[in-house]
Design a protein around this nucleic acid. Structure first.
Lengths: 132, 132
DNA sequence: TCAATACTTGCATTATAGTGCAAGTATGCA
DNA sequence: TGCATACTTGCACTATAATGCAAGTATTGA
């Protein structure tokens, strides 16, 4: 899993609606987050988000850390131009209020944490594991 | 020729090496430029650059203005987040010195202008019009 | 030790994007 | 009026990328 520092790779990583939603959510909240929290915030299937997270990781924008069953993701803030980049992402308009809706659901989802950690799995009926 | 204000379209426009070279060159110099000057600076064929310029235009990053046989292109700087974006592009590393080489050739090419305007057409042997 | 579950990935499909060639348009100058 | 030239674009081809399903891995807790 090599990290490539080519500019076009970074912009390619941001050239997708779903990935921008992820970046923006994590930037605005400053939180790290597991997959199931993102599923409940963005209302997208886990396999889809998992792959987009991988792309962000490979572009060097995300760090992922396993904690038991959960994997926590957080934005990489070094070198400084990455911070500058996230700030720009955050400054972009949100005409359809997609990002603000994601943010709202994320905040609600944070209430289910215990000790700053997720303990519940996917809550959205649509994407719950069959066995659930 | 509609201008779309969706974030992913802007980042998609930046997700290409050639387009980043164009943006960065025009940002660093603050100049507007015609196609043949860009051909001589980036050493890429005119049809290729012409198409990339079109993509930048459609993303709302570039304004193109015809002046006789020449078409001058310049960066769009409003709204403010575009300036912020270009600043970030400019802040990105240039490990292979691609951008600095483009810049060098561009400065040399500027010497051929008369009254701030190009009057000569493509100079690079490789991309000259056959009849030339 | 076995089942539930948080997450990942191989595969097939579809969509999008970059490139080169060659032909096209439009402008200016002889 | 006709040719040179600055630029654009249709077409074919290739490469890359997004998606959904289903199957896989790894961890935890009963």
């Amino acid at each position: 899993m090599q990290i490539i520092i080519q500019a076009e790779v970074i912009f390619q990583a941001l050239a997708d609606k779903t990935r921008l939603r992820i970046i923006r959510l994590m930037r605005v909240t400053g939180e790290e987050s597991c997959l199931c929290e993102l599923v409940d915030s963005l209302l997208e299937p886990p396999y889809k988000l998992s792959r987009h997270l991988k792309i962000l990781r490979q572009a060097g924008l995300l760090l992922s850390q396993k904690e038991g069953r959960w994997v926590y993701h957080r934005l990489v803030s070094e070198p400084a131009y990455l911070e500058q980049l996230y700030a720009t992402v955050q400054a972009l308009p949100d005409p359809n209020e997609i990002y603000s809706k994601d943010l709202h659901r994320f905040h609600q989802r944070l209430c289910l944490r215990e000790g700053r950690r997720c303990r519940v799995g996917i809550q959205s009926e649509m994407f719950k594991t069959e066995a659930g």
